[in-house]
Deep mutational scan, measured.
Amino acid sequence: QVLVIRIKIPNSGAVDWTVHSGPQLLFRDVLDVIGQVLPEATTTAFEYEDEDGDRITVRSDEEMKAMLSYYYSTVMEQQVNGQLIEPLQIFPRAC
């Protein structure tokens, strides 16, 4: 299952990153890619938005798994409803 992660860049749009092994993705892998997209920032975590629009911070593989399972459940709903699949949007955080 292909996963598209949209890395939101403060004040300048976003970069889409296509991942072919989504469920095996590790927290460190995401930080590495964010580091390539935002080389001047030191990113130690990132956030995503849940169904209520609240930002949830991801700082570990466990939290990463929770984010992915949340995302895959929303994708299934979108597929069932015949909607366009939205990329998983993440917001890098420099701490």
Rank of each mutant, 00 (worst) to 15 (best):
T57E: 09
E49Y: 15
E47N: 02
Q36P: 00
G35E: 15
E49V: 08
R59K: 14
L26K: 14
T43D: 08
F91V: 06
V33E: 09
P23G: 10
A45C: 13
P92R: 01
S12V: 10
V15F: 14
A14L: 06
L38C: 15
V80Y: 11
F91R: 03
I34L: 12
N81Q: 09
M67A: 02
D52Q: 13
H20P: 15
P23A: 10
T57V: 13
D52R: 13
R93C: 10
W17L: 06
I85F: 06
S21Q: 11
E51D: 10
Y72M: 08
T44A: 09
W17Q: 04
R93L: 15
R6Q: 05
Q24T: 10
P87W: 04
T74Y: 14
P39R: 03
A94V: 15
D61C: 00
F46Q: 00
L38K: 05
R28F: 09
Q1H: 00
Q89T: 15
D50R: 14
S12W: 07
Q78T: 12
T57K: 05
R59H: 13
F91W: 12
I56S: 02
Q83A: 13
Q24I: 06
T42M: 13
P39I: 01
D32N: 13
A41R: 09
R28K: 14
S60Y: 01
T18A: 07
T18V: 04
Y71G: 01
F27Q: 03
A14E: 12
G22E: 14
I56P: 02
V15T: 06
I85D: 07
P92D: 01
K8M: 14
Y70S: 12
V33W: 11
T74F: 11
E63K: 02
Q24D: 15
T44G: 10
Q36G: 04
L84C: 15
E77D: 13
T57F: 06
P23W: 06
Q78Y: 10
Y70E: 07
I85E: 08
M76W: 09
R55D: 01
A14M: 07
I56K: 07
D52S: 13
T43R: 04
A66L: 13
E49G: 01
T74L: 08
I85S: 08
I5N: 00
V19T: 11
R28S: 15
A14T: 14
D16L: 02
D29A: 04
E51F: 07
I85P: 07
I90S: 03
D50L: 15
I56G: 00
L68D: 00
N11A: 08
S21K: 14
E40I: 03
V2T: 13
D61F: 06
S60I: 03
E62A: 12
M76L: 10
I34P: 10
I34T: 04
E47T: 00
G35P: 04
V19M: 12
E77R: 13
G53L: 03
D61N: 07
P92T: 00
Y70K: 04
Y72S: 12
Q83F: 08
I9N: 08
L3R: 04
R59T: 09
E47M: 04
I7Y: 02
R6C: 03
L25S: 05
E40P: 04
L38F: 05
K65V: 07
G82F: 06
Q1T: 10
E40N: 08
Q24K: 04
R55F: 06
V4F: 14
L31W: 00
H20Q: 14
S60C: 14
M67Y: 01
R6D: 00
F46R: 02
V75E: 05
V37D: 01
M64Q: 03
A45V: 05
Q1F: 15
A66Q: 14
P39K: 06
P87F: 07
A45M: 09
G22S: 11
Q36F: 03
C95P: 12
R55K: 08
Y48L: 00
G82T: 08
Q89L: 11
R28E: 11
D32P: 02
L26M: 04
C95E: 14
V4K: 15
L25R: 03
N81A: 05
V19L: 12
L31C: 06
Q79P: 11
I90V: 05
V37H: 15
W17P: 02
V37S: 05
G82R: 11
D54F: 10
Q83D: 14
Y71H: 07
E63A: 06
E47D: 11
V58E: 03
I90F: 05
R93S: 13
F27A: 01
Y71D: 00
Q89K: 09
I90G: 01
N11Y: 05
D61T: 00
P23C: 14
S60Q: 02
I85M: 07
G53H: 05
P39D: 10
T44R: 09
A66I: 14
M64T: 14
V33N: 03
G22Y: 08
T74W: 10
Y70A: 11
V15H: 12
M64G: 00
D29Y: 00
V4N: 15
E62T: 09
L26S: 13
E51I: 12
R93P: 06
I9A: 10
W17C: 07
T44C: 08
L26P: 05
Q83V: 11
P92I: 03
R28C: 08
L31M: 09
F46K: 02
G13V: 11
A41Q: 15
Q36S: 10
L88C: 05
Y48C: 02
Y72N: 11
A94M: 15
Y71V: 01
I7T: 02
T43F: 08
L25I: 15
W17G: 01
E40G: 10
G22C: 07
L31A: 11
A14C: 14
M76F: 12
R6W: 02
L84H: 14
V2N: 14
A41S: 13
T18Y: 02
I7M: 04
V15W: 09
D50K: 08
S69V: 08
S69A: 13
I34D: 02
R93Q: 14
S69H: 10
A45Y: 07
D54S: 14
E63L: 01
I90L: 05
R6Y: 03
A41M: 12
L26Y: 03
I90Y: 00
A41Y: 06
V58L: 00
T57Q: 12
L3C: 06
F27N: 04
Y72W: 08
L3G: 01
E47Y: 08
F91G: 02
Q1E: 15
T42Q: 13
G53F: 02
V15Y: 15
A94W: 13
Y48G: 02
D52W: 11
Y72I: 06
Q78L: 08
G22I: 04
W17T: 13
E86C: 14
G53E: 01
T44H: 07
D54N: 12
P39Q: 07
L88P: 01
L3T: 07
V58N: 04
T57R: 06
I7K: 03
P92L: 02
A94D: 11
A94Y: 11
V37T: 06
Q36W: 03
R28Y: 03
D52A: 14
P10N: 08
V37K: 05
E63W: 00
L84N: 13
R59P: 02
N11L: 04
D16V: 03
D52Y: 09
D29V: 03
T44V: 10
L38H: 06
W17Y: 07
D54C: 11
D29N: 09
T42I: 10
M64C: 15
G82V: 06
P87C: 03
V30Y: 07
V4G: 03
L26A: 13
D32Y: 13
L88E: 04
Q1R: 06
Q24E: 12
T74N: 09
E63Q: 07
T44K: 06
I56H: 12
F46V: 00
Y70M: 15
Q78E: 10
F27S: 02
E40K: 06
E47I: 02
P10K: 06
Q83S: 14
H20G: 14
L38N: 14
L3V: 08
I34W: 00
V80S: 14
K8R: 12
L3D: 00
F46I: 06
Y70I: 03
L26I: 11
R55N: 03
I85L: 14
G13D: 15
S12L: 11
Q24N: 07
S12K: 14
D61K: 02
A45Q: 10
A14H: 15
